[in-house]
Nucleic acid binder design. Sequence first.
DNA 1: CGAATCTCTGCAACCGTTTGCATACTGGCG
DNA 2: CGCCAGTATGCAAACGGTTGCAGAGATTCG
Lengths: 335, 335
Amino acid sequence: MPVTARDVARVAGVSVSTVSRSLAKPDSVSQRTRDKVLETARGMGYRPNLAARGLNTGRTGNIALIVPDLENPFFSSVAKGVQSKARAAGYAVIIADSEEDPSQEAEFVRSLATQVDGVLLCSPRSPDSVITQLAQECSVVLMNRRCGDIPTVTIDNLDGVRQAVMHLRALGHRTIAYVGGPSTSWSNRQRIDALQAVAAEHPELEVIDLGAFQPYISGGIAASDLVIASGATAVLAYNALVAFGILKRLRQRGVRVPEDISVVGVENIPMSILTTPALTSVGIPLVNYGRAGVDMLLSLVRDPSTPPVHHRDLSFRLVVHESTGPSPAALRPSA
Amino acid sequence: MPVTARDVARVAGVSVSTVSRSLAKPDSVSQRTRDKVLETARGMGYRPNLAARGLNTGRTGNIALIVPDLENPFFSSVAKGVQSKARAAGYAVIIADSEEDPSQEAEFVRSLATQVDGVLLCSPRSPDSVITQLAQECSVVLMNRRCGDIPTVTIDNLDGVRQAVMHLRALGHRTIAYVGGPSTSWSNRQRIDALQAVAAEHPELEVIDLGAFQPYISGGIAASDLVIASGATAVLAYNALVAFGILKRLRQRGVRVPEDISVVGVENIPMSILTTPALTSVGIPLVNYGRAGVDMLLSLVRDPSTPPVHHRDLSFRLVVHESTGPSPAALRPSA
DNA sequence: CGAATCTCTGCAACCGTTTGCATACTGGCG
DNA sequence: CGCCAGTATGCAAACGGTTGCAGAGATTCG
């Protein structure tokens, strides 16, 4: 049904190879022939079959993006960036949602490996060993995680956490609770380590790790009562959804934000300005983050001479909204 | 580099065709051979190259999903549903984000046509004529829009709007403003028509159409001052993002919700419970909505004997939260 | 025991491209 | 005028599968 190169060739009175060359390497064909071919091709609405092309070039023109949860605004923003950048470079994006299930990630990569030129693994939940294995089966760029020498785009968690904590410290907070995400999350581990490091630099600070929670609103809701019980005057949340859940539950419990407790999220999603109070957070423009991933992946697959190891570390930026304020403890000198 | 059917054939001591048949039509091969082939295949980690298969079966095993804005929680939820259902059926999903640009939609469909078995066009912005054209170039299922006899999954806008309006009417509201979305949006037109129809049934109601706004938070913010000036005691928003924007701006202006103005959104996204006050809306479970789209598309592409025209209309459900309350006008009889 | 039938397997063509190689033609130069 | 370099084109072999067709055994039945 669709028009093939053979059809174009017949109409234009040339061979299939000439059609192919007219499109792929215009210089290897005479001006006259090329014009004729291109015009008939356009006239007939010819589109080369990418699957067929991929068969012998080895290039499919597709990339895969694997995320743990498409419904999480963090990942949908990243996905938007990935999509737009990839499309601009002539690539289509196959998206897979692993539903936070590590075993699905490997399955996805393997089942997509033949259909794509490279894979963008965003916040993979799989253990290092699996990821290392996958990376030698096909071109992989990691986002939000480091693993050996595999190319990555990450955000500087240590600096981000430091910015958040310094902000809270300046507001007089001394006891800071951390509501963590999945224990399989590399970012989560990073942030815990960062918290310890920053706390070590400032002995007056106490950090309370409240443990692992689901990276959803429900996780934040579940954690909130622990936050209150912990006596902390400030809380840092694994991600924006968790922070939202905390805001919601604190309000339910009658705890005022920021008067009683200050809340900071890691991640800056468009919704953050909508909550009451609007969420203070450290984050980066997520669409750009996705774009950066695509940049790295494409430079990898298009130019294999690129040095195979490549890391890029973006910077968090603190955005202060309404959910942080002076520590209530600071007002009472004895505390 | 990857292991091919030829490799498996060599190791198993059979021909390529036997390998192919062992996987595709197991009955046409003897028990013994099949077992041997399948085992070596598994042992070698063989994965059939889908592009190659697609070349002569005409089936690619991919579907495309085209949405106007991946960052909009509505579409990311739908995408999640599409992804999970498609994957379960053995299909991969190529996602494209048209950025609300009608001309990109057609371009996407055409450029993806050879790589997918069917296209799910979600809330297309293109004119009917273009969509009709696209639908005859490849298998298309429309979501959130009707267009001729093209198979569709929609939500019953008339009933949804009626539920919203009846809710407001019961609360004593008589003047209701509507903040619309893009004029190219079919849903938007549907909802305006529905509003007129419902208003016609209830002469005591006055509906004020405030015009078209961007389907983003910013659109809601932009519309809010018009809402206030309109004198309406209740407002219906094109989608959840717009409703969020309205809530935000009304709060800024010192207008209380729901005491002064009630707000209802069309669309029920997970974030709706997070705003203050939580948003009353009519909506449906979006993940299921995406699944329904995939169901229809797959039944279309897998079984061409299916009657070609198919419409499915899902039902809105009113979810009352905190953003709607008794009309202030009702308290003052003179108003 | 031979022929007909059935089951299983391999051969080869094909899907729509790309690309190395060979060929035909062009023109320039000695 | 003949030769050579160079250019433009076509032929055919891939890429990795699927599938119609035919042939080889095995089985059944007269």
